[in-house]
Simulated scan of single mutants.
Amino acid sequence: MSELWSYGPESRSTAGASLIGFKVEAADGHIGTVDEHTQDVGSAYIVVDTGPWIFGKEVLLPAGTVGRVDMEERTVHVSRTKDQIKNAPEYDREKHRGDPGYRGRVGDYYGRDGS
């Protein structure tokens, strides 16, 4: 499941670029903007600020859910639907950093749910 935490071939060309502030589009519409992202090999992800869509909630998406990044349009396209993202395990900055099981739960959810 480590490929779930790595950017795919169509999004690897962004290496070294900041995605913060980019729009994020799910398979069925806009979900927010990138608030944070990493490019760590085997553990990369983006954090999306969903704004009013999910009452200001932030969601963590493994890098493997990123289908492509349009640098010109400043848009990240992810391969999950709005409902899949909305129903994902709740993101909590402290839990993500301090709970080793959290990443596993997120990986299990996205690994079985569409990949």
Rank of each mutant, 00 (worst) to 15 (best):
G21Y: 13
I54A: 00
F22S: 08
G104M: 06
G114E: 00
G32Y: 02
S13Y: 14
A26D: 05
V66E: 03
G29P: 01
T65F: 00
A44L: 11
R105Q: 09
E94R: 05
S79T: 15
L19K: 06
I54K: 05
G107D: 10
A88K: 03
A26M: 01
A27I: 10
T75Y: 00
R12E: 14
R12I: 11
V41Y: 10
R103Q: 08
A44R: 09
E36R: 07
Q84N: 06
G67W: 02
G98A: 05
Y109R: 02
K82D: 05
E36N: 05
E3M: 12
E58T: 03
M71L: 15
R80E: 09
Q84R: 11
G101I: 03
I31P: 05
A17I: 07
G64A: 09
S2M: 14
G8T: 14
G114Y: 01
G64R: 02
M1Y: 04
G42V: 00
R12W: 02
E3W: 06
K23M: 09
I46A: 06
W5E: 06
E36Q: 10
M1H: 13
Y109G: 04
G111Y: 09
F22I: 12
D40L: 13
D92Q: 04
V78G: 05
V34K: 07
V47R: 07
S43G: 03
D40S: 12
D49W: 02
T38N: 10
G51F: 09
V69Y: 12
G67M: 03
A44K: 04
R112K: 07
G64K: 04
G32D: 01
G32S: 01
P9I: 15
S18D: 15
K95P: 10
G51H: 11
D83N: 14
E3P: 13
K23N: 11
H37N: 02
Q84A: 10
S18C: 10
D108A: 13
V69E: 11
D99I: 02
G8V: 11
G104P: 02
G8P: 01
K82G: 07
M71T: 12
Y110L: 09
V59Q: 02
E73C: 09
K82I: 14
E90K: 08
H96V: 03
V48H: 03
G29F: 00
R74Y: 05
Q84I: 15
T50K: 08
F22C: 11
E72F: 13
Q39L: 05
G107S: 06
D92T: 05
R80G: 09
S43N: 07
D113Q: 02
P52I: 01
E10Q: 14
G101D: 13
G32I: 07
R105K: 11
G101K: 05
